[in-house]
Computed example of a mutant assay.
Amino acid sequence: MDTKENILLTALRLFAKNGFEAVSVSRIAGELGMVKSALYKHYKSKRDIFDCILERMDAMDIERAKKYEMPEGDMEKVVTAYRKLPFEQIRTYSEAQFRHWTQEEFPSLFRKMLTLEQFRSQEMNELYQKYLTSSPVTYMKEIFRGMTGDERTAEQLALEFYGPIYLLYSLYDGAADKEAVTALMNTHVERFSDSLKRSLEQGVMQDE
C-alpha cells in the first residue's frame, strides 16, 4: 500500500472510531508515525482527505455496478432494463451490496463513520441519507414502480425489501457469528425475489 492510500485508510479508521470532527491532522499523522508536513505533501487538509474518501466511495459504486452488469443511465432507462433483468442477477447484486457495506473494510468504515456522525452535522446527515437510507429506498421504489406500475405498491415493496437489509447492517456489526447474519441476508433477498417474481407472474396472467 502506498503512502497516499495508507493515509486515506488510516484517517477513515480514525473517523469511524472517533468521529470526523474529533480527529485532527496531527492525530492522523501521529497514527502513521509521520509529521504533519509529510502528510501535507499528499493531502492539503483533513477536508481534502474526506473529499477523497467520498470520491473513492463513488468510484467503488460505479465499479461494482459494472462488475455485476447492472443497468446504468437515467432512471427511465434503468427501470426499463430492470424489467428484463433476471431475478438471479438482482439477487447476486444485492448480496454483493451487503458484503460491500459489511465485509469490505473501506465501505464498512465509511458506513460506521456516517452512522456515528449523522446527528452532528447537516452534511453528514445528508450523506447518511444518500448512502444508507432515503436514497436506496427511493431508488428501489422507482425500480418497483417500473415493475408494478403502481406508486403505493412500489413504495411498500421498497420498504419491505430494504428495511431488513438496513437492520441487518447493525446486527452484523454486533454479531459474534457474522456469517449467520450474512446467511440471513441472503435468505431474505432470495425469498423476497421469489415472492415478487410470483406476484408479477400472477399479475401478468390476470391481465391476460
Rank of each mutant, 00 (worst) to 15 (best):
D2Q: 15
A11C: 06
L12H: 07
N18C: 03
G19N: 08
A22T: 06
V23F: 08
S24L: 13
I28G: 10
M34R: 12
K36Y: 12
A38Q: 09
K41N: 11
S45C: 05
K46N: 11
K46G: 11
D51I: 02
I53G: 00
E55D: 10
A59L: 08
I62P: 00
R64G: 01
K67V: 10
Y68N: 02
Y68C: 01
Y68H: 06
P71Q: 15
A81H: 09
A81G: 05
T92W: 02
E95G: 03
A96R: 00
Q97C: 13
Q97E: 08
F98I: 05
T102K: 04
F110Y: 14
K112Y: 01
T115L: 14
S121P: 07
E123Y: 03
T133R: 13
S134A: 14
S135A: 11
P136A: 13
P136T: 11
M140N: 02
K141H: 11
E142F: 04
I143T: 01
I143Y: 00
F144A: 01
Q156L: 14
A158Y: 01
L159W: 04
Y162L: 07
P164T: 13
I165K: 12
L167H: 15
L168K: 14
L171S: 11
Y172R: 03
D173L: 04
A176S: 05
K178L: 02
A180P: 15
V181W: 03
V181Y: 03
T182M: 04
T187N: 12
H188V: 06
D194K: 10
S195H: 08
K197M: 05
R198G: 00
Q202M: 05
Q202R: 03
V204L: 12
M205G: 01
Q206R: 12
Q206N: 06
E208K: 14
